[in-house]
Amino acid sequence: MSNLISVPKNGTLSNSNSNSNFSTLSHWLDDIFNRDFPSVLTSNFNTGMTLPQVNIKETADAFIVDMAVPGLKKSDFHIDLDNDLLSISTETKEENEHKDANYTRREFGYASFKRSFNLPESVDEDAINARYEDGILSILLPKKEEAKQKPVRNIEIS
């Protein structure tokens, strides 16, 4: 589905006309920050959440965005639509405190992500819906009636 354009975490739009053999600075930075660092470097602040992978499928009637995000609740997600920009984000915070007679241990955890996509004009924005089931967030982006593929029609010659 070439109409949806991924927007990197820094919010800048990727150039769809760029030569795919040359990485842009934003892709290079995304690669650096999404790479698995050795646990020695990240053990104090890594919560294990990475930028989730997205599958986008186009059918005759809709686009379907599936995102694998296990371990969350549907209330953890924020899905916003702002001028044809669909943004999916979550933010989780965790704080544990253990007290014993001789010590206090406090641990903090924080994880978040945000994925954004430019929607094509063919999407019926009023009919978008989402569901979260078995660790998969699915967003249905129905097409407008005039954008739906029409069945093949045989035209008789008179």
Results as ranks from 00 to 15, higher is better:
Lys74Ala: 02
Asp100Asn: 12
Arg106Ser: 15
Pro142Trp: 09
Val40Tyr: 11
Phe117Ser: 13
Asn10Gly: 01
Leu51Trp: 02
Asp76Val: 01
His78Ile: 11
Asp82Tyr: 09
Phe33Lys: 13
Glu146Arg: 03
Ser2Ala: 11
Pro142Val: 04
Pro8Ile: 01
Lys150His: 01
Phe77Asp: 03
Phe113Ala: 06
Tyr103Val: 05
Asn15Glu: 02
Phe63Leu: 12
Arg105Glu: 13
Ala60Asp: 13
Val40His: 06
Asn17Asp: 07
Lys143Trp: 08
Tyr103Thr: 05
Asp100Phe: 12
Lys73Arg: 14
Asn3Trp: 03
Ser116His: 09
Ile128Trp: 00
Leu86Val: 12
Pro142Gly: 03
Lys114Leu: 01
Leu81Tyr: 13
Leu141Ala: 06
Arg153Phe: 12
Leu29Phe: 09
Glu125Thr: 13
Phe22Ile: 14
Pro38Gln: 01
Asp30Ile: 04
His27Glu: 07
Ile56Arg: 02
Met49Cys: 04
Tyr103Ile: 11
Val40Arg: 10
Ser23Asp: 08
Val65Asn: 06
Ser89Tyr: 06
Leu25Lys: 11
Trp28Tyr: 05
Glu156Gln: 10
Asn21Asp: 15
Glu133Leu: 13
Trp28Cys: 07
Tyr110Trp: 02
Pro142Arg: 05
Thr50Asp: 13
Asn34Ile: 04
Ser20Thr: 02
Leu13Gln: 06
Arg131Trp: 09
Arg131Cys: 14
Lys143Ile: 05
Leu141Phe: 09
Glu156Asn: 15
Asp76Leu: 01
Leu141Met: 10
Gly11Ile: 05
Glu121Pro: 00
Pro151Ala: 12
Thr47Asp: 08
Asp126Cys: 12
Thr47Phe: 07
Ile79Gly: 12
Ile139Leu: 11
Asn44Lys: 07
Thr90Leu: 05
Ile32Met: 07
Phe108Arg: 02
Pro38Ile: 00
Phe45Tyr: 05
Val123Lys: 09
Phe113Met: 11
Gly71His: 01
Gln149Tyr: 00
Asn15Pro: 00
Ile139Arg: 00
Asn129Met: 07
Arg115Thr: 07
Arg105Asn: 11
Asp82Gln: 11
Ser20Tyr: 07
Leu25Ile: 10
Lys73Pro: 13
Asn19Lys: 00
Gly48Tyr: 09
Lys57Asp: 15
Val7Arg: 12
Ile32Gln: 08
Asn118Glu: 11
Tyr103Gln: 13
Lys73Ala: 08
Leu140Gly: 05
Lys74Gln: 00
Asp31Leu: 03
Lys114His: 05
Thr90Ala: 06
Asp100Glu: 13
Glu94Gly: 14
Ala101Asn: 08
Arg35Gln: 08
Leu13Met: 03
Asp100Ala: 15
Ala147Phe: 04
Lys9Pro: 10
Phe63Tyr: 15
Leu86Phe: 10
Glu145Tyr: 13
Ser18Asn: 02
Thr59Ile: 00
Phe37Lys: 04
Val152Pro: 02
Arg105Gly: 06
Pro38Thr: 00
Thr92Pro: 04
Ile139Gln: 02
Leu29Tyr: 14
Ala62Trp: 09
Pro8Met: 01
Lys148Gln: 08
Asp66Thr: 09
Glu156Ser: 14
Thr24Ile: 09
Lys150Glu: 10
Pro38Trp: 01
His98Trp: 08
Ile139Asp: 05
